[in-house]
Design a protein around this nucleic acid. Structure first.
Lengths: 166, 166
DNA sequence: GCCGCGTTGTTCCAATGTAGCATCCATGAC
DNA sequence: GTCATGGATGCTACATTGGAACAACGCGGC
C-alpha cells in the first residue's frame, strides 16, 4: 500500500480490515484505496469521479474496475449507495461497534440506514433510527409484505446551512 | 385524443384532468397519452420503454419528449419515480380524493408516499402511512434538518407472491 | 513447481438522462 | 382577423451511469 490517509480515514480503514477478516474476504489494495477515496470525500461521490481520482495512482483503471470494487464494498457493508444521487458514502455505523446479528440466509449484510442529504452543502448525515426502521417494517407487515432491503433518503437543509445561510 | 383506455385508466385520467385544471396547467394529448401508458402498466416502467410504446402512435418521439413529459407529470404529482428502479408508476393517492393543503413556497407539490417493490412479480404497492412520514420528520428534526422531498422504498416479497410461490 | 480460483485488466456496449436550439401552436390583445 | 407571446413539441447530438464478456494476473494451498 503506502497511500497517505488522514487519521479518521485510517481508523475506518482498520475497522474495515477487521470486518473483512471476520467475513473471510480480502480487502485488497484496490479496495482499500477506493474505500479511502470515499471516506476522504466531504460529500457523496459518483462512480466516475472516484474513477478519475483512482487514476491518479492507478493509470489503467476502467469503469468495471470501480464498479466491481464498489459492489464489493456494498456487499460487505462498508459503503452505502445513495439512490437519489447515484453516489456513494462511507458507512459510519461501525463507529458504534455494536455488531449486527447475522441470521443465515439474510441477503442484506449491511445495516438499515437512513440519509439526510443537504441540498445546499451536499453533505450527508447518516442516521440509524430504530423507530423509523420499525415504522417501515410495521407498515410493510400490514400490507402483507416481507421486507428486504430498504431505502430511506430525504433531501433538505442541514442544521449548519440553515444557521449560516439566511 | 382518441386512444383506447380501460375504465380504470379513464378514471385516473379524468382525475388528472381535474388536478391540472385546478393548478392552471395543461394536460395535453402527449401528456395524457404518456400518463395513460404508465397507468396501464402492471409494473413500474422505464423511460425508454415508455418511449418505445409512445412511438407506436407518435412516430417521431425522442428521449427529450418522454423526459419532459415525465417531468411535467412528476411536478404535478400525477406519477412517482422509483429511485431504485429508475422507473415510473402512477400516483394513486388521488383515489382518496382528500386534497393536499398547499402552503405557498412548498416545492413539493406531490404528497409523500412510500413504496413496496416485489422482487418476484415486480409490482409495486404505494402506501401513504402518516406514522412513517412522521417518524422520518421527527428523526430529521432531531438532527436539525429541514425536510424537503423524501424517498422511502423497500424491496421484498408481496403477499400474493409469498402465498403462491413456496 | 503448478494448479485453482479470486482478483484485476481491457474492450466494447447498454441504459438512462440532458443541452441547446428550431419550430409549432394555443391563447389573448388589439 | 392579425399579430405577438409564451408554452409545448421536434430534433440532433451528447453526457452520465452501469454492465457483459473474456483475457491475464497472482496469491493460496498442495
Amino acid at each position: 500500500m503506502g497511500f497517505e490517509f488522514a487519521p479518521r480515514t485510517l481508523s475506518l480503514l482498520s475497522h474495515a480490515e477487521t470486518i473483512c477478516a471476520g467475513r473471510g474476504v480480502r480487502l485488497t489494495d484496490l479496495r482499500r484505496q477506493v474505500l479511502g477515496l470515499i471516506v476522504q470525500s466531504e460529500a457523496p461521490t459518483g462512480a466516475y469521479e472516484l474513477l478519475d481520482r483512482l487514476r491518479a495512482t492507478r493509470h489503467n483503471a476502467a469503469p468495471p474496475t470501480i464498479y466491481r470494487t464498489l459492489d464489493f464494498l456494498l456487499e460487505n457493508g462498508l459503503v452505502h449507495r445513495l439512490e437519489r444521487l447515484a453516489a456513494f458514502v462511507p458507512c459510519i455505523a461501525h463507529d458504534h461497534p455494536r455488531e449486527q446479528a447475522h441470521e443465515p440466509g439474510c441477503e442484506n449484510p449491511g445495516h438499515a440506514a437512513q440519509f439526510l442529504i443537504c441540498r445546499r452543502c451536499k453533505r450527508v448525515v447518516e442516521i440509524a433510527d430504530p423507530a423509523l426502521a420499525d415504522a417501515l417494517a410495521e407498515a410493510a407487515g400490514r400490507a402483507g409484505f416481507t421486507l428486504g432491503q430498504t431505502t430511506i433518503e430525504a433531501e433538505g437543509i442541514c442544521a449548519a446551512c440553515d444557521a449560516a445561510g439566511k
